[in-house]
Design a protein around this nucleic acid. Structure first.
Lengths: 135, 135
DNA sequence: ATTGACCTTACCATCATGGTAAGCTTTACC
DNA sequence: GGTAAAGCTTACCATGATGGTAAGGTCAAT
């Protein structure tokens, strides 16, 4: 008999929170856990491994939906690596879009901020920029 | 009498949605609008200008709370530009943090993806990366 | 047997926005 | 003046991912 982990132990091991683990079970990302007679969830090493995969996917910025797909592929011995890469590349596109958006904000705000004197006067290029933009 | 705008016109002019305008009124970001006898909201040019400021602040990625502060400063003739710049710089810090996070994700995912063959085989460096990370 | 640590579910909150439904108002036109 | 279409009103629910709390039950060690 392998030692089974309670949800708190699973949380510590995986890096997820107990809250998240329960939530992931609710939405079907994690399979329903076995319970003790008293109703406590118990996890075996394989299930802990799945949680680790989820943790890593989240760390790479994948959404729960994307993570779900990744976990399914991970658990499917007949998967084709092509499918996995497609998910990854799609996510990279999204990451790049977000970076570009943020870079544009940064650029625009930086310019406005550089022209602001930061003194006791009311005159401020940042506020002027907020008020005068026509697009 | 200046021509007053209905919420739909205000939405078109400002670039916000009617939904958002109502919501912003609810949370106090916009002042309560005057109404027609029938209950329709009406906006004067000054109020439309405030909406424009909000739109621009959002475009620069400010949260509604930060936007609220900016609008207050914008409407306060006794403001000090120092305060405005402080808000802007704080936001720039947040933007840079997000960019760094995304860059790290991009880097890690890119590396994993580059090593994936994207063929019919199950073997996949991306899934291996998800399963083997220990941190 | 008691106690303290841990677990359970159910509910509400966040952030910012979108969607829908049922019903009332305004406008434009005949 | 009447009708119809377009536009407005509020109220409710949804998203995505997570956190918080409360009221209560369970487990393990003393």
């Amino acid at each position: 008999m392998t030692k089974l982990a309670t949800i708190g132990e699973a949380a510590t091991i995986s890096g997820l929170s107990a809250k998240m683990i329960r939530h992931y079970e609710t939405i079907g990302l994690l399979a329903k856990a076995n319970r003790t007679d008293g109703g406590y969830r118990l996890y075996n090493p394989q299930q802990l491994k799945v949680m680790g995969v989820i943790k890593q996917a989240k760390k790479l910025g994948f959404s729960l939906n994307q993570t779900h797909s990744l976990v399914d592929l991970w658990q499917n011995p007949k998967r084709a690596s092509r499918e996995v890469k497609q998910l990854a590349e799609q996510h990279l596109v999204e990451i790049n879009e977000k970076i570009n958006e943020l870079e544009q904000m940064k650029q625009a705000l930086q310019t406005l901020s550089n022209n602001c004197n930061a003194d006791d006067n009311a005159s401020c290029s940042i506020l002027d920029g907020l008020a005068n933009n026509q697009n």
